[in-house]
Design a protein around this nucleic acid. Sequence first.
RNA 1: CGGGGCGUAGCGCAGUCUGGCUAGCGCACCUGCCUUGGGAGCAGGGGGUCGGAGGUUCGAAUCCUCUCGCCCCGACCA
Length: 578
Amino acid sequence: MKLSTFFLNTLKEEPRDAEVISHKLMLRAGMIKKLASGIYSYLPYGLLALRRVETIIREEMNAAGAQELLLPAVQPAEIWKESGRWAVYGKELLRFFDRKGAEFAIGPTHEEVITDIVRDHVHSYKDMPLNLYQIQTKFRDEIRPRFGIMRAREFIMKDAYSFDADDESAEKSYKAMFSAYERIFSRCGLRFKAVEADSGPIGGSFSHEFMVLAETGEDSILSCSRCTYAANQEKAEVAKPDVYSWEDALDGSPREVHTPHIRTVQEVCEFLDIQPQNLIKTLVYTTEKGPVAVLVRGDHDVNETKLCRVLGCENLELADEVFIQEHTGAPRGFAGPLGLKMPMVADTALLKNGPFVAGANREDYHITDVWLTRDARIQSVEDIRAAIEGDSCPRCPTGKLQVIRGIEVGHVFKLGTKYSSSMNALFLGEDGSLNPIIMGCYGIGVGRTVAAAIEQYHDEHGIIFPPAVAPFQVLVLPISLGDTKVMETAGALYDAFKDRGIDPLMDDRDVRPGVKFKDADLIGVPIRITVGAKDLAGGYVEIKNRGQGTIEKVAPDRAVEYCIEQLQHKGMMFDRTD
RNA sequence: CGGGGCGUAGCGCAGUCUGGCUAGCGCACCUGCCUUGGGAGCAGGGGGUCGGAGGUUCGAAUCCUCUCGCCCCGACCA
């Protein structure tokens, strides 16, 4: 491709609305253009990168035995009502009417559609295992789209669905996808981590998220320093602490102290001269099963996902001021476990390091010398707090959890029979019994993967594409268009790359060299070959590795070979498996 | 949905408080000269219903009312 005719417009100045690096660079490098909030066009340069990722995904999915199909973006309300999600999905599902008044939605995901297909075509255990996938545009009407293509409303996603006759087979399907994902992100050249995730209300025993590691990532990951345990913030467990002994618990007995207008953790600590870890924070939640008091240490936060699972409830909300006054007998800030008349759940951390200070359920009073299991009627002690840096690993004896940031690019989970049951996707087993198909679902944000690659690989000059994702792997940059020798050499290199099956980009624009160099750095082509008159007189061209910043002088007739070696040697080559 | 901010040329901005000649600047774009190893210089040029509607006024980018869009923080969420 010749740059003089390629549809590419780079920007010198930073777009005002862009916040994160990948968004800024994608706009500046002419990859995308915003049409509306969370809705973007892919311009040719951006599309090339997107296609690279798509191709890798396609190859690995096919290699794993999945079959590609294409599903409609517009979906009738009926199938959503059948699965029960029409009522549950909320405003994120963009709904509308057609001319006849029939109700439709734009697909945010395709479980219903795929289940509808499979229930009509799969009737026997002999038809499985089956794995079908699609790569296409989806729409979720996000409350707040941001970060450009990373969290857009319209986005391109690969979704695969597996169908199995029994759990063992379903687990195999899951593992096959898991390792396909490892290959996909490895081939993209990304540093990533698969972390345990909460499978949410859908249930199921497995769920993993694939996170591209980047400082600017939106998600927190807790990862063990010693073993392989890693989980997202929602799921991350905390090791059970040693429980205090009853001898310790004997000293002191609960005493009320006057704490006028002292209600926040910080205020109580200052007033009584104690540390937050010596305080019991009592939070009142309302659920569909009634109110519940949740006790955590003053320096800890409740993890509502874990709490929900422990309580077995679906809706969880912090109670308001009025509710608290009514049920604890005191305004917000003075609730405590002693004498509280509602179910209580305490976090495991409260089994250790007593005694504690807690609210007295009486305005302007707290209670000191509280030993939780001695003094309060606690229904259950569970792991319900958010894990934090330095917590003990739940899987190994000595590891500590550390917090790292990541961008979620993939999610694999077991759906079980949620959709097959509600939508009647049944099959006949070997024994003649009729059962719902066991499903799994495996997504990859394609556009987000491109953004994540940029987020992970860039410097102050621009993008540094991993070669497998790069729209072009090589850029031929002749310095002076007026010099015949330069243009001949550049042209020969350009043709030679094409002969070797590499599509090079040639900057044949009649602009000053500085402009070309700046653009080359910005758009992040992995290898740049500069052809200049002086170098040619010396018998060489200059080959720059964008990632390493190294520059080598190489004879023109060896240049193509050298570049290919570089791309292969550094593991940078776009390596095909099919 | 709550709080904050912004809409003036493709991009980045000034002008708005305190109304007044033909609405400016930088980048980008076009023409010419010149230049050619890290976003050169000179000269000339094109491009705007100042987000939209209504109002006040002799006169509105500027003041008032309504409205639409966009961004950030928060709440929320695959």
